[in-house]
Design a protein around this nucleic acid. Structure first.
Lengths: 187, 187
DNA sequence: TTATTCATGTAATTTGTTACATGATTCT
DNA sequence: AGAATCATGTAACAAATTACATGAATAA
């Protein structure tokens, strides 16, 4: 995946490995980010494979590689972009937790749901305020990933809150039932 | 993560590695699944660490290990369950694609969005029909992961469709503008 | 009897992170 | 002069997948 993400950034112009990482941090951090430990080796591999080429920056004593995407790289990237996508691949930490929450007491479970909902709200706020220092104006689709994030966190928050009230409601219903049972037992 | 998922399944009773995999396929497949290559080594590791214990199934010639969770395992599992969670960790293939869709022609992009929306709808249908052969009645939270899946795919589908119509609308607006400009140019 | 399902395991590979090492350049 | 940022890279480790190898039990 790293390879294609890097190629994608290079589609918008030549960049150094360092710059690619900076771009990621500013624009895709909420759904994708790579470390130097994967960026530099990936660039080297792709240079060997002829997908990108490095230009040693002129003058300066220390090596400084500016990579640009080559025709083969563009082809590979566009093929990847158009290839079928298994839309929700990858494990969901959140759902895995949720799946096992029956192992907790109801009170603890409710608290956790509330905490998750709060986290979703916080992430949303963070994303709202993080529209700041983008290098260039994001294009329509780049901006849409931001908007997706906002919509998704909102969805998540309300869903988790809904689940929390359901848990309360079912607890109340259970209390109701057991009260009635006791009464009937006494009568 | 594998370790905790496995411990979670063992919380509901002793199981073989094979059975754990089967359970995953039937109940958590849409957000988490592990391979034998991670399940068996994980069980072995955890047995060494005293989190689980294996019982060789009686009689049968071939070895067959039924694992049960021990006190230390329960403790570790419950700690994990209650630990703070970075709610949306992990890269999103979908958003990465979306981010770079400006590299495509508008028509191709629209088509891709439509395809993604269709995939979401299909996943939803698949999930609806996959409520079939669960081993036991899922509890409230287990069932809620299923419901989350349905709600999420619905959200995804409508969001993607909305984005598609936005693309069309902006294309139409652009056409409008250029038409007007031409007219004004002529007048 | 033959195919399928049950059942366990390993080796190679993939893919990535973390932590470290190094040094140039620019701002204060 | 010193701190922060720019900049590249590697080695150790982690986590998991894929493909393979093996064989017992059971259903057709």
């Amino acid at each position: 995946m790293t390879d294609f993400a890097i190629l994608g950034f290079l589609m918008y112009g030549p960049k150094s490995g360092y710059a690619i990482k900076r771009y990621m941090a500013m624009s895709t951090a909420h759904f994708y980010e790579a470390s130097y430990g994967s960026i530099y080796p990936s660039l080297e591999r792709m240079a060997e494979a002829g997908l990108v080429e490095a230009e040693r920056a002129e003058g300066s004593g220390r090596l400084k590689r500016i990579y640009s995407i080559k025709a083969a790289g563009k082809k590979a990237f566009l093929e990847w972009l158009a290839s079928p996508l298994d839309i929700v691949k990858g494990p969901s930490l959140l759902l895995l937790r949720l799946f096992f929450m029956g192992c907790l007491e109801r009170g603890d479970a409710k608290e956790m749901l509330a905490r998750f909902a709060r986290t979703a709200a916080e992430r949303k706020e963070w994303l709202e305020s993080a529209t700041d220092d983008l290098p260039e104006e994001p294009d329509f689709f780049q901006a849409s990933t931001q908007r997706f994030g906002l919509a998704y966190y909102a969805f998540l928050q309300s869903w988790l809150e809904g689940l929390g009230t359901e848990v309360s409601a079912s607890a109340a219903a259970k209390d109701e039932r057991s009260k009635r049972t006791k009464k009937e037992g006494r009568s």
